[in-house]
Amino acid sequence: MVNGDVETVDELPAAGRTFSQRVAERGERLEELEARLEVLAQHTDASTKAEKITAILMFAQNKANERGKVAVTPAEIRGCTGVSRRYAYDLVEAVAAGVDGVQVRESKQVRTGNGSEHKQKTLLIDCEGVRELNDAVDSYTTSNGGDGEV
């Protein structure tokens, strides 16, 4: 069998069949990951304000895992939307004003055991309060005529 041609998987020894099955499983997993990557790429290339807000809320939901509330910094907003530093701060205000379950934590100095620490302005997103992500984004975009502008 080593020197002959193999026509079907059934002609392979058990190890060959196991290897073939693993290759097929990895191929399916690769397809799933490529599909997820495509969705993420669409969010990072967000062009309208509503798409940027959707990307921020999706980022928060992914970051939250099992926690109910998550903080999203302007730097993280820049990373998930591709906007400038200044516009990231504008989006902090826009998301807090336009989506229920989101508030702004203003920047402040906090005393620690070793001195003080600067906490930057951050979005606090209650992922359970924003339960239905699509509903939150839809209500944001449709309340303004669907154009996504505040």
Rank of each mutant, 00 (worst) to 15 (best):
A41I: 05
E128P: 01
N62W: 07
G82L: 07
A50E: 12
A14P: 02
I125P: 05
T54F: 03
V83M: 06
P13K: 11
L57H: 07
L91Q: 01
S107H: 06
A15E: 11
T112C: 07
A46Y: 03
A71P: 07
H118T: 09
R17I: 08
T18W: 03
E11D: 15
R131N: 05
V70N: 02
D100V: 10
A41R: 08
Q103I: 11
L30S: 12
L123W: 02
L40M: 14
E93Q: 12
E32I: 09
L91C: 06
V104Y: 10
K119C: 07
G98K: 03
G27Q: 15
N114K: 14
G98A: 14
Y89R: 14
L37P: 03
E38C: 02
A71F: 03
E93K: 13
H118E: 04
V83C: 15
I56T: 04
L57M: 11
G113L: 00
Q61C: 04
G101C: 11
D90A: 10
R26K: 10
G68R: 15
G82Q: 02
A71H: 04
G115P: 05
G27Y: 00
R29D: 11
R22P: 02
R78F: 02
L133V: 15
R17G: 04
R86D: 13
E66H: 07
R86W: 08
R131Q: 13
R85I: 00
H118I: 07
A41S: 09
T48L: 02
G113D: 05
A14V: 10
F59S: 06
S107E: 01
V72F: 01
I56F: 05
R105I: 03
A97C: 09
D100I: 12
S20M: 11
G98V: 02
E38M: 07
I53C: 02
E11P: 03
V23F: 09
E28A: 13
K63H: 12
G129N: 05
E93H: 12
G98E: 10
E25W: 09
T122Y: 00
A50Q: 03
T54D: 00
R105K: 08
N65Q: 14
A24P: 02
G79P: 05
S116D: 09
Y87F: 08
A64G: 08
L37G: 03
Y89F: 12
I125L: 01
D100Q: 14
A96W: 12
L33V: 14
K52N: 01
K121F: 04
F59C: 05
R67E: 13
E25L: 13
Y87W: 07
A64Q: 08
N62M: 05
R131E: 13
G82S: 10
L12C: 03
T54G: 04
I53S: 06
I56L: 05
L12A: 05
P74S: 15
E51M: 01
N62L: 08
N62V: 06
A94G: 01
A60E: 02
Q42P: 01
S84G: 15
K121W: 00
H43A: 07
E76R: 04
R131P: 02
S84N: 12
L124I: 15
Q103F: 05
R111A: 13
A24Q: 10
F59W: 04
A60R: 04
E51A: 13
R105L: 14
R111N: 10
D100A: 15
T81C: 14
E93N: 15
Q61I: 03
G68F: 08
D126T: 15
R36E: 14
E128M: 10
G16W: 01
K121A: 12
D90P: 00
Y87D: 04
V130S: 08
G113T: 09
